[in-house]
Nucleic acid binder design. Structure first.
Length: 262
DNA sequence: ATGGCTAACATGGTTAGA
């Protein structure tokens, strides 16, 4: 949390307005330096910046009415804040970036994709291609780069509670996995898998059909790191605690810690 | 069994999520 360590989190809160009490409760128990939020679902004018300041967090946000919206919160001032993918006139607020202690952090809310073959699926793949081109430039400028967020893609079958039932569906389709593979091929590492993890580790569970109680989930919230930053990663975990609370987000936060002293 | 649940916007029922 301080000195040589940097802890970065990511959490799809599914409405910051509704989840602000959970965020406060979780932050009180969870030391971190930087936190990317997705699906804040409010315009910038309604962003609860003063509430978050009371929780010790400043930062920057990129919101819109009703849908999407991302924020990058930090205990230290953010440098070089950027919103959206440069040169891509995306009307949906899905990306915000900033730097802390020489580490570049890009926070993403990848489109859902709805169904394979749909217009939204095509948008998802186009969006991921644009993200890849943007990240290639970010990697060239920032050796220490983390790309955190809700990817809406389960990287492998072990990230899916029932791979047979999900085969070919959106979030696991070959096209999406190829797009994620293209991001990894830039030199990014899914740091969660750098460490031993519990079997059946997921970060999202459907609200319906008692999915959380059955641990019927997907691991779709990821921390990707450049090779130089991944080499400094000392741990990565999913914190399912707030998913057990009353009126939860359907996603759990993910945390990764980096030792910057080396 | 193509549902189940939650949130925004609106104030009943649609859109969207994953």
């Amino acid at each position: 949390m301080s000195g040589a360590e940097l802890t970065v989190g990511t959490w799809n809160v599914n409405s910051l307005r509704v989840r602000l009490p959970h965020l406060a409760q979780w932050l009180a128990a969870t030391p971190l330096d930087v936190l990317g939020l997705q699906e804040i679902k409010l315009p910038d004018a309604d962003f609860p910046g003063a509430d978050l300041e009371r929780l010790g967090l400043g930062g920057a946000w990129h919101g819109q009415k009703t849908y999407n919206g991302v924020a990058l919160l930090a205990r230290e001032p953010l440098a070089g804040v950027g919103r959206g993918i440069p040169g891509y006139g995306d009307p949906q607020a899905r990306v915000i970036a900033g730097s802390v202690r020489g580490v570049r952090i890009v926070n993403v809310y990848v489109p859902n994709g709805q169904a394979v073959g749909s217009d939204k699926y095509a948008y998802k793949l186009e969006w991921l291609a644009r993200l890849g081109a943007y990240l290639a430039g970010e990697l060239a400028r920032h050796p220490l780069l983390a790309v955190v967020g809700d990817y809406n893609i389960a990287p492998e079958d072990r990230d899916v509670h029932d791979p047979q039932a999900w085969e070919g569906q959106v979030h696991v389709s070959p096209g999406e996995r190829a797009a994620l593979g293209a991001l990894l091929a830039l030199g990014l590492v899914d740091v969660f898998r750098r460490f031993e993890q519990p079997e059946r580790s997921y970060s999202w569970w459907d609200y319906r059909a008692a999915a959380f109680r059955r641990n019927a989930g997907l691991r779709i919230d990821l921390v990707l790191a450049s090779s130089a930053l991944a080499a400094r990663c000392t741990g990565c975990r999913i914190d399912a605690t707030p998913r057990r609370w009353e009126r939860p987000s359907d996603h759990a936060p993910v945390l990764a810690t980096f030792d910057l002293s080396a």
